[in-house]
Amino acid sequence: MTQKEVIFVISRKTGLDKEDIKKTIDALTDVVQESVIDNQRVHFSGFGVFFKKKRAQKIGRNISTNTAIVVEEHYIPAFKPSKLFATKIKTAS
């Protein structure tokens, strides 16, 4: 589902203007990104948590030259669904 489709569905369900919904979604994603970058966890009750996860240094492989390379430790964005959300996914048919 694309952002445009999400905006359309929210607009249809709520009766709100699509442009207002787009601005709200853009602001939400900005806040989540900035918070995670600042090492803050963002909790949405009944949905899940966005956070920054540390990946340890490891040895990788350049497959074109078949040589080992060191992949330095780095951070990645992560999401952990709530138990309620995970249960809904598991029981959906």
Rank of each mutant, 00 (worst) to 15 (best):
54 K>R: 14
26 D>F: 05
58 K>T: 06
31 V>C: 13
10 I>E: 10
36 V>L: 05
65 T>P: 00
92 A>N: 12
44 F>L: 09
62 N>C: 03
29 T>M: 15
22 K>S: 11
23 K>E: 09
77 P>V: 15
38 D>S: 07
72 E>D: 09
13 K>V: 15
67 T>I: 10
38 D>V: 01
67 T>C: 03
65 T>Q: 03
2 T>K: 14
19 E>H: 14
57 Q>P: 10
93 S>W: 00
43 H>I: 09
36 V>Q: 08
91 T>Q: 11
23 K>S: 07
42 V>F: 10
79 F>S: 13
21 I>N: 04
87 T>N: 10
70 V>D: 08
44 F>A: 06
84 L>K: 00
43 H>Y: 09
67 T>F: 07
36 V>S: 06
3 Q>M: 01
84 L>G: 03
14 T>M: 15
68 A>H: 05
54 K>D: 05
48 G>L: 14
36 V>H: 09
6 V>I: 06
49 V>G: 14
24 T>D: 12
16 L>R: 15
53 K>M: 07
28 L>I: 04
62 N>L: 04
6 V>E: 02
73 E>L: 07
59 I>E: 04
13 K>M: 15
52 K>Y: 06
79 F>R: 05
27 A>M: 04
29 T>W: 15
46 G>H: 01
45 S>L: 09
31 V>Y: 12
69 I>L: 09
78 A>H: 11
47 F>K: 11
13 K>Y: 15
90 K>G: 14
40 Q>S: 14
87 T>Q: 11
55 R>A: 01
4 K>V: 05
69 I>E: 07
82 S>V: 08
2 T>Y: 14
88 K>P: 03
7 I>H: 09
21 I>C: 02
88 K>T: 11
1 M>L: 06
42 V>Q: 13
92 A>M: 10
27 A>V: 00
1 M>R: 07
3 Q>F: 00
43 H>D: 00
43 H>C: 01
54 K>C: 05
88 K>H: 11
45 S>Y: 12
25 I>M: 08
83 K>I: 12
86 A>S: 04
91 T>E: 10
40 Q>L: 14
74 H>V: 13
22 K>M: 07
36 V>A: 05
92 A>I: 04
34 E>A: 10
86 A>Y: 01
88 K>R: 13
5 E>A: 06
17 D>E: 13
54 K>Y: 07
63 I>A: 02
46 G>A: 05
16 L>C: 15
15 G>E: 12
78 A>R: 13
6 V>S: 04
78 A>K: 13
74 H>W: 06
27 A>W: 01
51 F>Y: 06
87 T>M: 04
36 V>F: 09
64 S>C: 03
36 V>D: 07
68 A>V: 11
85 F>V: 10
20 D>W: 12
55 R>G: 00
64 S>N: 07
78 A>E: 12
30 D>L: 04
72 E>R: 08
80 K>N: 06
37 I>Y: 02
77 P>A: 13
90 K>C: 04
68 A>C: 10
74 H>I: 04
64 S>M: 03
30 D>V: 02
58 K>Q: 09
80 K>F: 02
52 K>D: 01
77 P>H: 10
63 I>C: 03
5 E>Q: 03
17 D>Y: 15
39 N>H: 08
89 I>N: 05
